[in-house]
Structure formats: C-alpha cells, structure tokens
Design a protein around this nucleic acid. Structure first.
Lengths: 201, 201
DNA sequence: GCTAACTATCTATGGGGATAGGTAGCTGAC
DNA sequence: GTCAGCTACCTATCCCCATAGATAGTTAGC
C-alpha cells in the first residue's frame, strides 16, 4: 500500500506522467522506495479510478501523446491521512542476518565474500545518500527546489530539515551495517586462525 | 526463496513437524525470519517433492498422527549451496524513512506518535534480542544447545559465535533506529517551537 | 532517409506472503 | 463428561512485486 503513497508524495511537487514517475523512482527517491514501471502504470490508473488523481492527455510530438497525472483534493487528503496514521511494523525478514546466524555452514571464503558484498552494497548506498544530503544542503536537488517553490516560505525549513533527517538516518544505518560486516570479517579470521591479511581487494 | 532455507536451517537441528516449525518461527528465529503456518505446510510438501526433506508419519495419541520432516543429504547440499552463494541485494523499500521524508505533511503530534511507535517497536525487539544473547551466553537456548549436541566440539565456538554475532548486530541496529527516532522527536520540537517537555509517556 | 536511443505505455506470468478461514484430534481441568 | 485450549494440518483468496516482453511514437545524428 505504500507505492500509492510514494506516488502521491512525488505528485505533490508537480504533475507527472507514469514515465516521469518511473524515472523519479530510479533517480531521486530510489533509495527510500523503488518500483518498476509495470507497477506504476496500473497503480496510476487505479488511483485515478479512486479519485486521487486526474489524468489528462498531453500531446507529445505530431502523433504521440502522454498522460499526465495531477493530485486531486481527495488525493491530498489521502496522503495527509496516511501521513497522520501510524505505520504497522511487520516482523523482520532479513536474509543477511539469517545467513549470518548460520555462517558456520559456509566456506570461510564464501562467508568473507558475503560480508564484503554487504559492505559494498551499503557503501554504495552510503555514497549516494551522502550526495543526496549534499544536494539538499546546496540547493541543487531539482525535486526539492521545485517542491520549495510551491510551498510557503514558512515551511521551507521543515521541508528541508525532514529530507535531511531522513537521509542522514539512512547514512548512519548504512555505516552501522558496514561496521557490523567488518566485525564479521574479523570474527571469521579469528575463528579460522587466519592471522595473515587475506583480502586482495 | 529464503523461507525454504530458513526451514532447512531449523531442520538441521532435529526433525520437526510443520507445527513445531511454525512455533520455532514464532519463538526462536522469529526476529530474523517469520512465516505463518499457511506458508510453512505447503512449502514443506514442496521441499519433500524436491527431495530436500523426507516426511514420516508419527502417531500422536490413539488416532491422531503428525508428519515429521527430516533433512536429506540433498537438503544439506542445498542449504550449504545457499550459504555459499552470495545474496542479491534488492533496492530499499522502507516505509518508515519514506514517511520521515515527508513529515511536514503530518500533524506534529501524529509525527511524534510515529517516531514513538518506531522507538517502541525497536525497543521491544532490542529487549528480545538482548535476552537471546543472554541465552546464548548462558547456554540456556534450547535450540542452540541441541544444535551443539549434534555438532563436533571443534565447531562449537564458531556456531555460538555466529549466533551471537547476528543478534549483537541486530541489537546495534535497533539502537541505531531508536537514536534516529529520538533525534526526530527533538527535530519536531525545534521546528514547532515546542520547548516545553510534551511527552506524558 | 535511416538507425539508434530514448520516451511512453501496457500485458502476462508467477512467486511470496498476508489474512482468513476450515477440520480434526488431543489434553487437562472443572 | 464436557468444554476450553492446544496441537496438527490444510485451503482459498488477494495483493504486491519481480521479471519479461510487446508495442509504438519521438528525437537526433549520420
């Protein structure tokens, strides 16, 4: 049910087509949410049917056309309602930690490779999020600046602060995951008596 | 595809019925993985069809019976193969951070309630995981001690260490989430000029 | 004028999981 | 002896999502 609200969040900035939204998911919001276009297009149709959006045909070149969606009052209400309503926390489902609990079953090198992949994954995310924070701070985030353009000046500080707060939190989490995996690498060496420095990379 | 491997992980300790496994998910492993019985029973059937498990009918009372599954060699191979194979990291999908990025849309009190719920959720998990680590350290975890009973003494240190490593990592992550939410509560107060201490709980 | 790369949208299939039931036997307390 | 609560297993439906692929128009460069 969050895809719908992620779409609403993006559409509160400006009207967009399904294609725009799918690009926005890949680029701007991608590291808080993500969805393929095959999910986005039907969901937009459903949201229009539910009255949250209105879609208008926009010509595109001589014969082409595209469908641009903008949020209705009902859509804004739904988004606000979702924002005010508590989240339901479902139980954990975490393959990385599941595997970690049984690492004695893996070859030491395979175990090391997994933890290095864990580090690489979160390091990559960390770099992207750091860049995001930099964009927020320097006013070079296209979506954010557009959003600020439509919002009263009195809200600018909050809007910017919450975006920053989110990404800073994600960076800290990524750093925690990296530290955890690094401790794991040390542990594997200890348990396997490999005192020599093994990593080539 | 991880449910299958979570089930294999549990069944490497000792043969169990679907019911046992569903209880084990609720109790022991529940905070690394979780599944309802309606998922477990059919998956066990499929795993048996795939040759990973063998199920035997065990009488239960005068007329009742239950089906106990034990892992085959093929099952052990499959589990080892999964353990040696790298995880694929799919893109983030994180409702809590998604909402955090748009907190300006929520009423300040609703925003506070969300972050408090975030804290409560991770605090609860933290307490359970701390208890788990205590059980690992004091040798009072039934599953772990059974597992150690079937494993050569030379592996005991690794087995215990990896379990501990997993839960300690989860505790640290929970603490990070709590800290993040607490910073959020401060931020909300700052942005809303509420200097007085508001929380009744 | 053709081709490659991009914009735009949609369908189909299948897996995993949540939720909500249903059936039946067993055990122990009152 | 019967009722509550537990053990045991199963089915059905729906939703979300991943993956793959189909179609068609546009733009720009060569």
């Amino acid at each position: 049910m969050s895809l719908r609200h992620a779409l609403l969040a993006l559409l509160t900035v400006e009207p967009m087509t399904g294609y725009d939204l799918s690009k926005a998911f890949q680029a701007s919001v991608s590291h808080v949410w993500h969805a393929p276009d095959s999910q986005i297009y039907p969901e937009l149709r459903r949201m229009e049917a539910d009255g949250l959006l209105v879609g208008t045909e926009v010509p595109w070149g001589p014969r082409g056309k595209k469908r641009e969606y903008h949020v209705t009052e009902a859509g804004l209400d739904a988004f606000r309602a979702w924002m005010n309503e508590p989240l339901s926390y479902t139980r954990e489902r975490d393959p990385a930690h599941l595997k970690a609990a049984y690492l004695e079953w893996a070859e030491p090198d395979a175990a090391r490779a997994q933890l290095r992949a864990h580090i690489a994954n979160f390091d990559e995310q960390r770099v992207e999020w750091l860049e995001k924070v930099r964009e927020i701070d320097t006013g070079t985030s296209a979506m954010l600046e557009k959003r600020l353009g439509h919002a009263p000046a009195s809200e600018h500080a909050s809007i910017r602060a919450y975006k920053r707060y989110t990404y800073v939190g994600l960076i800290a989490r990524a750093e925690h995951e990296i530290e955890w995996a690094e401790r794991g690498l040390v542990l594997i060496d200890e348990l396997n008596g490999t005192d020599a420095a093994p990593p080539a990379d």
